[in-house]
Design a protein around this nucleic acid. Structure first.
Lengths: 349, 349
DNA sequence: CTGAAAGCGCTTACAG
DNA sequence: CTGAAAGCGCTTACAG
């Protein structure tokens, strides 16, 4: 690998001059520049980024840690963030957090050691306290994607989960439902709590009671959704619709309901949350809440660069969830709504 | 950010000694070590990876460039490769190639400048010649994922496309089809040609003629699959099944066939290739060829590290495609097979 | 077992 | 416009 020294010798200039033509940040006479450019081409010279980063204390790299590289959000988020990063003349270094606190911390350390200009985190195992502590320990700017931590308000790209939970629940109420079950994600997570809160608020606004027997906590996984339905059915408190904390759990819920002889949406409506790609393809297609994760990725990159360069942040930080109505919910009159449910409940016993 | 100097001062030792306890590659007395460890902890010291890479000329990073971060393969490939990389005590740096030759080259340059220990490429815009030239220009080891370049035989993790094309075509023949259309990917790509070759071989083995009118080249996109069906139908050469070069084109083909009044698989069978996640969820679920992309990612990481460290390569390089039969194909007797097709063809005119 | 010092390949004041 | 030199934070022979 040729170095800047080799280029300088071949072009008969100092390494300082070569550096100047590489970075085009200081005046260089036309013919010296030509000689240097020719020498670089002849040698196939590539500047060593590590040396540059060491000398300048910046890397032009934005580091991103993702909970799960295989996750449904992942492609969209990463593709959009990458594109924006490229537009901003930076590069994206992505690492997996493996849904484990230790791995997430290790991934962050790795990026920090690499002198990334900023950190973009889409993590779910670190607590709010972990994140806050991290922010005090490093002066590398941090951006949180799809997460809201009050103490790090200026660093969050977030979407209002309460509104999302409210939107989807209200949609069911408008379809004529009064007995709506709810399968939440793990309640130690803020977004699970937010969605549940939205569910409660929609019920309240409609004058419907909040019935604990209809609410069950699960794990955001497909199997968890199936299992949650088992628990709900065993409680013998009838319901005609199920609000699920994410799409995956909705898939599991539908499967489990079918096993018990219920049709979706003929007998019971089911909704998801996230709007992953699959959700528009499954049968029935899923009514859900669209989370603009790609757009959030773009703004995360913008905010990261703005924070890293000391510019005034102009990136959009708050996003609104959007209701997407599909085949898993359908309009029905109120008297139809609970009838088939009750009869099947009885016939199961 | 504290440096090794700060640690050495606090622990009252030389920086060389600190370096030795960090890397644990040379003997250090127990109590010096304890002092150093304590000092590092007290300062929250993190070694600067760029400085280390500069000094050692290795980065412990495996660079990966992916044609398309949003692509269907992506999650699985990356998640598995990342996990294996971590197991091998390295890190993964991923960059998007954006399906453009310039961006792919730029991405590779970026990684090379970063002194990655090896390059793992899943690219589709660079030609075999580009890749070969690249391999001669750098001594950073290169691994090609899901691609076979004869001149770089020892660097490829590949799957036999010809066998895949043959498997899926033979499956259709066994279902009783004799008039099988074929929608290929871009024929400048080796895998498109391989799959087409497999299609031809299966026909040949069954004593069926290869009819040019039934073969059309497309672009591996869903819309391309739709458009390809239009072209096939306009040629007025009947067919009862369509072999598509990938799953996405199969989705487009099915949509287009439906628009023309054909049911899949009642009137026409359709097959895909790749077995992306969606394919088992769509209605009808897609008969396709499974490409073990996750396993290939694991072996790519292994091969990359083996090449980088001069170990004898033991990674598995050749993979076999697998037929996955689902709902988009069905057994039929030969006389049923072309009847409805012909009648609908006529009724369309 | 430990330290002093050179070197990795850049950048950037400082002079001229 | 250009060069000499110090410095970025590490590692690693070389001595002892």
């Amino acid at each position: 690998m040729p170095t800047i020294r080799d280029v300088s010798r071949l072009a008969n200039v100092s390494v300082a001059t070569v550096s100047r033509v590489i970075n085009a940040n200081q005046p260089v006479s036309a013919d010296t520049k030509a000689r240097v450019v020719a020498a670089m081409a002849e040698l196939g010279y590539q500047p060593n980024s590590n040396a540059k980063a060491l000398a300048t204390n910046r890397s032009d790299i934005l580091g991103m840690v993702l909970g799960d590289l295989g996750g449904p959000f992942f492609g969209d988020l990463m593709a959009q963030a990458e594109e924006e990063t490229r537009r901003l003349k930076r590069h994206l270094l992505v690492t997996a957090g493996g849904h484990s606190r230790d791995i997430e911390l290790e991934a962050i350390d790795f990026l920090l050691r690499r002198q990334v200009d900023a950190l973009m985190l889409h993590v779910d195992s670190l607590t709010d306290a972990d994140l806050y502590e991290l922010s005090t320990k490093t002066d590398t700017p941090i951006v949180l994607i799809n997460r809201y931590v009050p103490d790090l308000h200026a660093h969050c790209i977030h979407v209002n989960n309460e509104v999302g939970g409210e939107l989807i629940t209200r949609h069911l109420i408008e379809q004529g439902h009064e007995a709506i079950a709810c399968i939440t994600g793990p309640l130690y997570k803020g977004d699970s709590r937010g969605r549940l809160q939205g569910y409660r608020r929609a019920l309240e606004q409609a004058g419907l009671p909040y019935v604990e027997q209809r609410v069950v906590e699960s794990d955001y996984m497909e199997a968890g959704g199936s299992e949650a339905i088992e628990r709900l059915l065993s409680r013998k408190t009838p319901f005609t619709a199920v609000v699920c904390g994410n799409d995956l759990m909705a898939f599991g819920a539908i499967r489990s309901l079918r096993l018990h002889g219920f049709s979706v949406p003929q007998d019971i409506d089911v909704t998801g949350y996230d709007d992953i790609v699959l959700s528009s393809y499954v049968e029935p297609s899923l009514t859900t809440i669209h989370v603009p994760i790609g757009a959030m990725g773009v703004q995360a990159a913008r905010l990261a660069v703005q924070l890293a360069t000391g510019q005034r942040p102009t990136a959009q930080q708050a996003f609104e969830p959007q209701l997407v109505v599909r085949g898993s919910t359908r309009s029905r009159s109120s008297d139809q709504s609970s009838q088939p449910m009750h009869s099947k409940f009885v016939q199961q016993q």
